[in-house]
Amino acid sequence: MFASRLQRRKLLIASGATLAIVGLLTACSSGTPEPGSSDNTNTAESTAGGSVDGGGGTGAGGKVRIGFSGPAADHGWLGAINTAAFDAAKKLSDVDLIVAEGTNDASLQISQVETFINDKVDAIVLLPTDGAALTDVAVKAMHAGIPVINVDREFSSTFAARSTVLGDNYGMGVSAGTYICTELKGKSDAVVAEIAGIDSLPLTKDRSQGFEDALKDCGLKVNNRVAADFTVQGGEAATSQLLAAAPKIDAIWNHDDDQGIGVNAAIEAANRNEFFMVGGAGSKNAMEDIKSGKGVLKATVIYPSTQAADGIALARLIVKGLPFGELVTQGVPNRIVLDAPVVTKDNVDTYIGAAFAS
């Protein structure tokens, strides 16, 4: 019963994600050089675009001027977010991408968005360091007639964004739990552990809830749980604590492959291998471990690092008034949630080429 219901849900999500990918790829062409880095964190930096493709863009020369601001790339996944965004801009010949230096300071990011507003950009793609803290300035941009595309961390008001692109945090938990249920094959007394990220973040709560719900459907529960902080050091410390408290474990879900480097270090130091582990996010090193089949890591759940890149493609469509791929409806959806597939040894070659480095 649990497998069929969850499979139906995953198929629906996957179908939506496929439509999103088709729409975004249809919008792509080629041309814009990669942005450089800024020496002044308070100043947005413009990057020259490629040749105009004759589209109906706004701004000088028909260009669509898109401001992009995100957190500092102090984490493998965040670095991949930026790289994918820059690569997306290269492929859109009528886009002029204006990049603000990454920061984890909400006040500084607010000032960057205000600079975009004053510069009258055509659209803003924003991965906020704190969704609630950036809500007011995003609303200000919307009131100024500048569409905002919210990425990954949601604002606290629906008026703050024209469109939102999200990974499926709840779906990650469902995917991880479903995989563990399948692998344990009805072992009702199995001991399941969870190594979460930062517990205060809504995304962590969503991941844990999805995991709990999926396990419940097959009669399992989380027996041991710790939270880390999405860092290698935090992953190692939290896992050492977990292993000391649980002398026997059958399966572990670790929310994040970056902190998973520390998780693996703690597991090796404790000389524990009686369990299998599922990772989260989809890093290249995690997929290489899965492919080798030598360690406890048997799978990882994708959390797409393409969200900002998708946001840039959407911003262009919105400004130009273009349709969203092959959808019958006019315009761009207000909310897009990407899929959370499970990568195993059987399908790792499909995903490893696009994986990010931790």
Rank of each mutant, 00 (worst) to 15 (best):
G62Q: 06
D87I: 08
V165M: 07
V192Y: 05
A196H: 09
E154G: 04
D199T: 13
V22P: 04
S163L: 02
P33Q: 12
V165N: 05
T115P: 04
S200H: 10
G50S: 14
L25I: 15
G70M: 14
R335Y: 15
C28K: 14
A214V: 10
A340Y: 01
I312H: 06
Q307A: 15
D152S: 14
G173M: 03
I318Q: 04
S107E: 12
A246N: 01
L220R: 03
G131Q: 00
V121F: 02
K63H: 10
G235R: 03
K140I: 04
V22A: 13
R335K: 15
T115K: 12
I312M: 09
R225Q: 15
S15W: 11
L184T: 05
V222A: 09
G311R: 04
A245D: 10
G145C: 07
P304T: 12
A286H: 01
L166C: 00
V278T: 03
R8T: 15
Y179R: 09
A251N: 03
R65T: 11
G260I: 02
G282K: 02
F155Q: 01
E114H: 05
T158E: 15
A193W: 00
T178N: 13
K205R: 12
V232S: 12
T32G: 11
A20V: 06
C181G: 01
G54Q: 08
A132V: 00
G311V: 08
K291F: 02
D310S: 14
D257L: 00
L24G: 11
S163E: 01
A190R: 05
G262T: 04
G55L: 13
H75Q: 08
G325L: 11
S107R: 09
M172Y: 07
A27R: 10
S200T: 15
Q307C: 13
G131P: 01
A72F: 12
R5L: 12
I195G: 05
T239S: 06
V337S: 03
R5Y: 14
A161Q: 06
T129D: 07
N104I: 12
A144P: 03
D96Q: 15
L92M: 15
I352H: 10
